[in-house]
Every structure is written in structure tokens, then in C-alpha cells.
Design a binder for these strands. Sequence first.
DNA 1: ATGAAAGCGCTAACAA
DNA 2: TTGTTAGCGCTTTCAT
Lengths: 328, 328
Amino acid sequence: MSTIRDVAKYANVSVATVSRVLNKKGYVSKEAEEVVLKAIEDLDYRPNAVARTLYNKSSRMIALITPDITNPYFPELARAIEDVSLSYGYTVVLCNTDDDEEKEQQYVSVLKQKYVDGIILITNQQFNSDLEQMNVPIVALDRILSEKFPAVVSENENGAMMATEHLIDCGCKFIAHLRGPIGLTSAEDRLKGFQKVVQDKGVASIVVNTDFHFEKSIEVTTRLLEDHPTIDGIFSSNDITAAGAMKAINNLGKSVPNDIQIVGFDGIPLGKMLIPSLTTIEQSIYKMGALGARLLIKQIENIHLEANLYTVPTKLLIRGTTKVKGED
Amino acid sequence: MSTIRDVAKYANVSVATVSRVLNKKGYVSKEAEEVVLKAIEDLDYRPNAVARTLYNKSSRMIALITPDITNPYFPELARAIEDVSLSYGYTVVLCNTDDDEEKEQQYVSVLKQKYVDGIILITNQQFNSDLEQMNVPIVALDRILSEKFPAVVSENENGAMMATEHLIDCGCKFIAHLRGPIGLTSAEDRLKGFQKVVQDKGVASIVVNTDFHFEKSIEVTTRLLEDHPTIDGIFSSNDITAAGAMKAINNLGKSVPNDIQIVGFDGIPLGKMLIPSLTTIEQSIYKMGALGARLLIKQIENIHLEANLYTVPTKLLIRGTTKVKGED
DNA sequence: ATGAAAGCGCTAACAA
DNA sequence: TTGTTAGCGCTTTCAT
């Protein structure tokens, strides 16, 4: 690997001139620029990122911290973040904390030492972190963590309202909501939307808790339906728990959508693989990720953000678990 | 952030001594060590990773390159790699190339510049890369890429044999195999295992191609069953295509497992969410990832590897899509 | 056992 | 417009 010195020598100029050409900063004569460019070409020179980082105290890396990499929309989110980051010349560092405080500590420490420029928090988990002390820009995705961090979230309440209305339109008379984890703002907004609609329309309803996991959902739904056999509609706070509900319903010998109709939330690929395929509220996951990354990079580059909360629209995707038939 | 100079000053020693203490290298007197340690403590000093990297030409970062982050067992694999890496003091950089040559080039270039110490290639995609020229250790996961790189793979052939035998044990007389992408060694080994068993046992069989994607699988399976209505068993090269097959079967008005029995391959969470839940060959995904990471780190640390190919066992997970009833 | 100093490869202040 | 040089924070040779 050739260094800036090699280039300077080869081009018969000083390293400063090479640096100026590299960074397009300061005065450089046309001729000088040309020889330098040629030297760079000839030597296949690539500036050493680490040396730059050391001086600039900026690594052009951003960290993706998620407490739970199995988060079902992680892939799309990650891809979006990565696409945007790469296009701005940033590299993404993956940090999966698995909800482990110690691991998180370790990461924060390492990230600091590596001059990471910013952090994106993908999370649908509750997570109180010491990230606040780190003085690098942070953007939260899918969840509002603190007043201090800008956040990108879906139109959760609105989506939940669409879901609930759809169930009512499809004839449901007694609708259950499998709510997500308590304390998770996105789950709470979905609950809010649900409650608004059922109250507004005067439809019988019940809310039960889940932790967004499949097994728990089977358990909860089974009990729910045993206690309330007349439930004919379920709005589930995410697609995984919707899948759990379908499993429970099946186990109980009932049928979807004939006996019970279901609407999920997320729009992950799983939905279309279920039988029948899942009617759901689709989030623009890619958009969330891309927007999050852009906001982070703006902050890194000291561009002021107009807002502290950004919402991305959701959309009703009618498929086979509700009776106004879609594709299924 | 305090630097090594601050510590040296505070402790009344030279930076060299501090460095020696830090790295436990060279002679340091007990007393000197103590004052230095105290100084580090008092100043909450943390060595600057970037400066170290610059000197050592090692970043203690390893890159996780995947052509396709939606690879269904990515999360578990990533978590495993990450766990191991972190425990050895390595940070993981995520690189999703999305099968884009240019993106890959970009990454390789950046990684080089950042003194990345090693690379893990997670892939079930075909991907011919210029990674070979990079002179850092590489480990391939799930696929044999080249003689040059050690690889960790599942016992694909063996797993496929178990799957096929299980279908036969369950009474299947005409078994189809939805094979994975051509050129992908893991898919080819599964095919091999399948063929061995059907030939051995003299069972009627047919093989059709898929690209491991859901939609394609629906399409392929639909055609397959229209052409061969007497097929009563399917061994699918992965769980996603198994889900596609189930969807196709359902669309055709047939039932799983009564009319057609299915065995998948992978053991991803999706399997248990399907109705009925999917009988499958479970790979030890975590083990693969962890082993891959350890092998990579060994190479980085110049420890000679005994083998070039490591296999991780697979296991038959009997669930609801075959007739010897499991949990479902 | 310890310290001074060079150097990893780069940027930028300062001089020329 | 260009070059010299002092760092960025660390490690390591070479003296002492």
C-alpha cells in the first residue's frame, strides 16, 4: 500500500499538496493537481482511513445498535440504513446487545474509542441505556427513547385505526387487541388507535398483553378465546403475534377468517407465507431506515434538524385473514 | 478523553512505561505499575483504539459480508459471530452487498483502508468475488467458496438423507425435491443426499429447481403438482421454499400432511409459525456462526487450522407436516 | 527498569 | 501557490 509520501515523491510535490488535492481544500495549481492525480492513479494510492480518523476524530462509521437482532424487520431496516450510509461514505457497524446491559456498556466503550460518528438505535424493545452520555448524534427508530434523540416512527395510531376499522367493516362485533410490550411507545400508539375506533363505533372490545413473541401470543390468545368464545376479530400489535393468534385459533379448532378475522401490524414477509396470508398494516420499513440514516448523517454533519419526531405512513394490506377478500 | 501522555504525567513516568503497563509487555517495576494503574483509574483513561490501529495495522474489527441480509438465518448467525467476536475483543462490521458487485468492491476497498482483520462470508447466494486478492483471513459460512478459504457448513447431505428417509418412513411413495440454487454447494449436497436415498430405497422421485425464494417456490410447486398429481411427499431444500410449497398445495385444494407431506431444511423460526408447523432438518446455526468466528480469529492470530472444511451436525425435527406426528 | 524519540499516515497551521 | 513541520495517540527501538 502506498502512502501519501510515496505519492508526493512520485509527483515531485509535498505531502501537503497531495493532501490538498485529496481533500479539495486550499489552493492547488492546475498542473500540480494533474501530476498528483496521475501519481495517485499510477500508484493506485488510497488514503489510509485510520490515519485520517486519528487526525479528524471521525471514523465515518455509524453504529447500528439493536437490543434484538431477531427483530423481524431488522433486515430491511439494516439494508436501508446501509444503503444510505454507504452512499454518503459511511460504514455501518453492527452491535447486537441482546438486551444485555453489560454488552451494551462494552459496545459504547468500544464505539467511543473508535471515534464512531453516530448511532442508530433500532428497537422495539424497552431499553434504558447510558447512551445519553455519549456525545455523538443518535437517532432512534421505531420508538421514542428520550426527548433528546430524534426519532423516526411509523404512523402507529393511524395504522391501528385503519386495522380496527377494517375489522369492523368486515363485520366483527367483538374485537380483541393483542397489545405489544408496555412502555413501548409504538405499541402504545397502536393501542390508542384501537381504543379510539372501538369506542367511537361502540364495538365490544378487550385488550390483552403480549411481549411481541410467538409463543407468548399462542398462550395469551388461547386463554383469551377460552374466556371469550364470542370474539370474532383480533387486531394484533405485530405480525409475529398475529401468527401466534392464528396458531392458537387453529389449535382450538376454529377457522380464520370464518370464525375469527385477524389483522396484524408490520408487513414482514412472514405475513404472506401464512395460510391464509395475513391482512396487516404495512409499515414502510425501508423508508424508516433510510430516513433515520439520513437524519443521523445530517446531525453528524451539523445540519440542524427541523423536527424531533418523524413519522412514516402505514397502509392497510388486505389479504386472507379478513373477509373482504384480497389476494388470498 | 485523557491520553497516554496525561496518564504518564499524572503518574510521573514516561509514556513508554504506561504503554508497557497497558500491554503487559517489557519490564515494569511493581511500583511503577501501581502508580500507572492508579493514574489510569483516576483519569478514567481508555486507550485510543484508532491510534493503536494506526500503529499496529490491526483494527480488531472483523467484517461480516453477506450478499443478502434477508437470508433467513442471518440473525442467529450474526448473533453467534458477534458473541464470539466480542468475547475476543473484536467488533463486527456489517456489510450487506445485496449481490451488487459494485457495492462489494466499495466495501472491500473501505475494509482494507480500515485495517479490518478478517472477513466472514455468510452466504447462500452464489457470489464470485474479488475477495481473494485481499490478504486478510477469510472464513466462508454455509458454502464452500474456494479452496483457499476455510468453510463451515452443515451436514447437508446427511440432513437431506434423514429428511428423505423420514418421508419414506411416513409412507410417501412419490417424492419431489425442491432443490436450491444451482452452483450452491449446500444445495447440491442436499440434492445428493436426497438422490442417494430415493435410489437406494427405489422410491419414485423428481427434482425441480428453485432459487430459495417463496414466490418462485409457489410457482414451481404448483406446476409440479399439476404435472404430477400423485406426488405425496416433498423435501424442500429450505424452509422458505417449504412454506411456498405449502401455500401452493393449499391453493390447489390439497392438504398437508394428509395428501402431501413436507420436510424443510433450516429450522428457522418461520417453521413453527406455519400451520401445520413444519417438519424440518434443523441446522445448528448458532454453532456454525460461532465456529466460523473462532476459526477466523484463530487465523487472525496466526494459529494454524487443522482442517479446511468444518461440518456441523443437522437434526430431524418432526412437527406437523409429516404424519408421524410430533408436537403439532 | 525506564525514558527519549521516531514513526504509523494523515491534516493543517504557518512560512515562504 | 507550495512546502515544512507539528501534531493526532499510540508502540517500540535504542539508549541509559
